[in-house]
């Protein structure tokens, strides 16, 4: 127990309190509870429209993971332990924790089409926040608004505010380049540059002006280690990044994002193009990273959201329907729509 507590960097909460509060249900027991739920939704056939919106492969990949905890790989227990921590308690509400990102009355338009409607939510520091919702509901648009990636799209327009540590991201004096260095991003499709593994990770550092070879070497090793890729590539750092497997390329992109030392990492379906093994590697990684980074992840995979996130926000048709502790969203959703979505029923 002690060692687990040491890994946490959340200095805001005194350690003593941790011990006194009963541990929250870990991943394994959470699963068991979830499996014990009446499975009404599962047997109901999906309406065609909804079925199509989901990637069948993703569902198939997700199904075995939903089985009994005993069949899961051993690292799961670690995760369960990592999950053990102060009960942030639902009654405190999402706003009570220290918010890293604070979104208020945020609207977003592509030309004249309004795709986000008055979004309000606070994303806590050093936690994983999952964004879920049907395809086209604006998850990507929202996550890309946080680091202003949508600026590249012509005719796109935002109103309302997003603040990071109290600073307005869309304010007149905001520096987009600086913002994007603070807020890293990992994309759905891995997108390494056609350069060596080393140069990929070094890219962000070099454009930031770092030339010192020793320093570069050091940060590159650290970033690749954090992205759980170092051991696989340490002997071929100068080989092309394109020769890596899909899962390795995605971890390389994570390493590349981590190298510039962001405070926040945004991930838009980072594992959707990967097989279950590569996916579980990425999930493990997210677990490791949340000690040091605030993570926002978009996923279509309910199991994944349940496994990796502390908070979950459910979007539909450009609106934030419900935002709460992940447990709450999956076990005790307040909104009917949320319940229908997370149980696989829909509409």
């Amino acid at each position: 127990m002690m060692t687990i507590e040491m890994r946490r960097r959340d200095a805001a909460e005194p350690a003593g309190e941790d011990a006194s509060v009963p541990p929250r249900a870990g991943r394994a027991s959470f699963r068991a509870e979830r499996d014990a739920l009446p499975r009404t939704g599962v047997d109901v056939p999906f309406p065609d429209a909804v079925r199509r919106e989901r990637d069948d492969a993703e569902w198939n990949a997700a199904v075995p993971a939903a089985g009994p905890a005993a069949s899961s790989p051993p690292q799961n227990t670690n995760h369960a332990q990592l999950l053990t921590r102060t009960q942030p308690s639902a009654q405190e509400g999402p706003m009570s924790q220290e918010a890293k990102i604070s979104v208020s009355n945020f609207d977003f338009y592509y030309g004249t089409a309004k795709v986000l409607h008055g979004i309000n939510l606070d994303i806590p520091d050093r936690k994983v926040t999952a964004l879920i919702g049907p395809s086209g509901c604006g998850k990507s648009t929202f996550i890309r608004s946080i680091n202003r990636m949508n600026d590249i799209i012509p005719d796109a327009r935002a109103s309302g505010s997003i603040t990071i540590d109290g600073q307005d991201v869309y304010g007149g004096d905001a520096d987009v380049v600086e913002l994007r260095r603070r807020v890293g991003m990992v994309f759905q499709k891995s997108n390494p540059f056609p350069k060596s593994i080393y140069d990929n990770v070094a890219y962000g550092l070099r454009i930031g002006g770092m030339r010192n070879k020793r320093q570069l070497d050091e940060i590159i090793e650290r970033s690749l280690t954090r992205a759980a890729l170092w051991h696989e590539v340490k002997d071929r750092l100068h080989a092309s990044a394109l020769a890596l497997s899909g899962g390795q390329q995605q971890r390389l992109c994570i390493a590349r994002a981590l190298a510039v030392d962001p405070e926040i990492v945004l991930m838009d379906e980072p594992a959707s193009a990967l097989d279950p093994i590569a996916t579980s590697k990425i999930e493990e990684l997210i677990y490791e990273l949340k000690d040091n980074y605030t993570i926002v992840i978009v996923t279509h995979n309910m199991q994944q959201a349940a496994r990796v996130s502390d908070r979950t926000a459910f979007f539909m048709l450009g609106r934030l329907i419900e935002y709460a502790e992940t447990n709450e969203i999956f076990m005790n959703p307040k909104e009917k729509m949320t319940e229908d979505y997370v149980t696989g029923r829909f509409g």
Binding site: I152, F187, N191, P192, F193, Y203, G204, I207, V260
Partner: peptide, 26 residues
């Protein structure tokens, strides 16, 4: 050049010119 290349550069804090250089490099 796939737009994901430019996006990768922008997301790492590239300026417009630096993103263009990435596209040229690709």
């Amino acid at each position: 050049v796939p737009s994901t290349q430019r996006e990768a550069a922008y997301a790492l804090g590239a300026t417009r010119w630096e993103a263009i250089k990435v596209a040229i490099g690709f």
